[in-house]
């Protein structure tokens, strides 16, 4: 086995996992605190990527685009919460699934109306377009390293916000008993809007960071959304710690599996079978992992709500 390639794929896996974590953290926060299933979370990821594309084209600077995109997605999220989702908190999950499904259709068409049906490409920022030699022989694109660092920073910020600040205390209290928090005089509606906006900004951050290394297109959020669902189901809904562990796990298994499963199967079976079966098996691996984990722990790895 090629060790350099393995390390490189592991880094790719961690990078995918961290992006997934940014999405899953928002989803799991919204679910844990507001008890809301939000299918439209992937749309916020898409909107983030489109904002990044537009702002990069306007300002010519990716850094400025980041500065503009984050508040923009936060505002979009807050507006969506106030206009549409607020009346869904006390409904059953089926209603929420349907209404947010309607939101996906709406957002996809709105994006098509504004930006057109063709995909957009965001150029890599110049100062990150080179590669670094991490180990002798291991050359890794610096943009992907920057994604890893930025996501880790966001994850630490989230941890600090939830565990160390007053607003985080309210978020945790809201997760364990929202009626009581409301009764104690906290403006729970405002808190919910903030949490939703925060989740939207995290999704937007994931979208904008993914924009230069993938095509910005309609429906880009939907496949990532399913992966984020797998992450929060494995991690335990409502648990940010669980989401982090599960996201890294999923990112690693998906990436490393795709890279090495053909070789692994090829050593046991003939090549023709390996070529046919490996891609199918690799794309199924994370779902199989989810099935196994749920068979033993139906509530996920870290099932405690809040956390």
């Amino acid at each position: 086995m090629n060790w350099i390639l393995l390390i490189e794929q592991c880094l790719n896996g961690i990078q995918l996992g961290l992006l997934l974590f940014l999405l899953a953290a928002g989803l799991t926060l919204v679910f844990g605190i507001m008890d809301l299933v939000n299918l439209a979370h992937g749309s916020l990821y898409m909107v983030g990527a489109y904002f990044a594309a537009t702002f990069t084209a306007w300002t010519g600077s990716f850094v400025l685009a980041i500065v503009l995109t984050l508040p923009a997605t936060l505002i979009v999220g807050a507006v969506v919460e106030i206009v549409c989702l607020r009346s869904l908190y006390n409904r059953d999950h089926l209603d929420q699934v349907l209404a947010t499904f309607g939101l996906i259709l709406f957002f996809n068409e709105l994006v098509r109306l504004i930006w057109g049906p063709a995909g957009l490409n965001v150029p890599l920022p110049e100062f990150l377009s080179s590669s670094l030699e991490l180990l002798p022989g291991l050359v890794y694109p610096s943009y992907r390293l920057a994604i890893i660092l930025a996501s880790l920073t966001a994850a630490f910020f989230l941890y600090w916000l939830v565990a160390r600040t007053r607003i985080g205390m309210l978020i945790r209290a809201g997760a364990s008993n929202r009626e009581m928090v409301g009764a104690l005089g906290v403006n729970i509606r405002f808190l919910f809007t903030i949490v939703f906006g925060l989740g939207a900004a995290l999704a937007g951050l994931a979208g904008l960071m993914a924009a230069p290394i993938s095509t910005v297109e309609i429906g880009m959020g939907e496949n990532v959304l399913i992966l984020a669902f797998v992450v929060i189901v494995i991690g335990g809904i409502g648990s940010i710690r669980g989401a982090f562990v599960a996201a890294i796990l999923i990112g690693l298994i998906d990436t490393v599996g795709r890279a090495f499963l053909p070789d692994v199967i090829g050593t046991f079976f003939d090549d023709e079978f390996a070529d046919a079966a490996a891609p199918a098996l690799a794309s199924m691996s994370i779902y199989l992992l989810m099935a196994v984990i749920l068979a033993f722990r139906p509530e996920g790895l870290f099932s405690a709500r809040g956390g």
Partner: peptide, 16 residues
Amino acid sequence: EYWKIVFGPLLIMVVL
């Protein structure tokens, strides 16, 4: 061509 921009909110109205 953009009928889904009406259809999506229509769906939300049915739910609500």
